[in-house]
């Protein structure tokens, strides 16, 4: 067989291989970029959550006591393993939290660190203000903390421990909730 006969298929393959695939572009962006790529659809472009959107896909992460107080490794574990089924923490309209493997988010600890630092300092843009309506960050914190306390209490017995160890975290939110225990 002549090599020229393979050229059409090689050309076609190269053409399709050159098409953008999300995984390839994902590796070129930083933690903030990964947040927008993998997290913002559910948790809001500035971490404000999507409870006020339809469909509601995820709780706020900015001002979230768990995100603020839990170790980055614990958040990374949640990112890696997700919170599907019985492990889902929020008794609300949200679906399961999916798992993101290393192909989707190479540096989970780096992203978790961003959630605890950069995202918490995020300026609320006009875009996210629209999505939040009149809800201020302080009100988000208060509502979130109250919900978190309620949910943790409810979901505790059913929650399976994550693979990366049993971490006990004292969560103290803006409402001074007393000793909320979360087993992960």
């Amino acid at each position: 067989m002549r090599f020229e006969a393979l050229l059409p298929s090689l050309a076609l393959s190269l053409f399709f291989l050159s098409m953008p695939i999300s995984d390839a572009t994902a590796s070129e962006v930083d933690a903030a970029g990964y947040y927008k790529l993998r997290c913002a659809t559910c948790h809001g472009v500035n971490g404000e959550g999507t409870r006020d959107k339809s469909p509601s896909l995820g709780p706020p992460l900015r001002g979230n006591p768990l995100v603020i107080n839990a170790p980055a490794e614990m958040l990374a574990s949640i990112i890696r393993h997700g919170r599907g089924g019985q492990q889902r923490a929020y008794d609300d309209a949200y679906p399961n939290m999916p798992a993101f493997d290393a192909g989707l988010i190479p540096d989970a600890v780096g992203l978790a660190t961003y959630l605890k630092t950069g995202l918490q300092q995020q300026e609320t843009t006009s875009h996210s203000s629209d999505s939040l309506g009149s809800q201020t960050p302080a009100r988000v914190d208060a509502a979130e903390t109250a919900e978190q306390g309620e949910v943790i209490h409810e979901a505790g017995p059913n929650r399976a421990p994550a693979d990366e160890g049993h971490l006990q975290t004292q969560l103290v939110g803006p409402l001074q909730q007393p000793s909320l225990h979360l087993t992960e």
């Binding site: 953008p20 572009t25 962006v29 927008k36 790529l37 659809t41 809001g44 959107k53």
Partner: peptide, 13 residues
Amino acid sequence: VPYIRERLHAEGD
């Protein structure tokens, strides 16, 4: 889904 615009931007598409 909410914020599909941001995802498109993040993908550079």
